[in-house]
Amino acid sequence: MEIMEWVRFIIGAVFLLIGMFVFLVEMIGVFKFHYVLNRMHAAAMGDTLGLGSCFVGLMILNGLSFTTLKLFLVIIFLWFTSPVSSHLIARLEVTTDEEPEKHYGKSELTEEEKKGGEGR
């Protein structure tokens, strides 16, 4: 039984370390890139993969209990909200960009592209 405990601890720790590593990569990316959309790409990695594996590691370490369910709900909530906020930032950046030629190789966006996801 003690071996099983150890195996669980090691699996959980590995997941946590993977999450930490992803967060480190995210951090470097955010400070290294200079354009909004590039930085967002780096930041989104931490919000999804890094957070996901950290919480999975914590869930494995914690074992089955009510706390595990709560951790799972936190993951669901953050995976719901983080892409939406990134989407809004990206959309605002695209609609208000002052140098589209430099960033997209295109001088003018069409009306359709500018509208993005508006309306139904």
């Binding site: 719901f80 909200t81 939406v84 989407h87 809004l88 959309r91 605002l92 996801g117 309306g119």
Partner: peptide, 12 residues
């Protein structure tokens, strides 16, 4: 100021 009537945001 900000995107309005965004379908993705509204659904979420």
């Amino acid at each position: 100021h900000e995107p309005k009537n965004d379908v993705i945001l509204q659904t979420v």
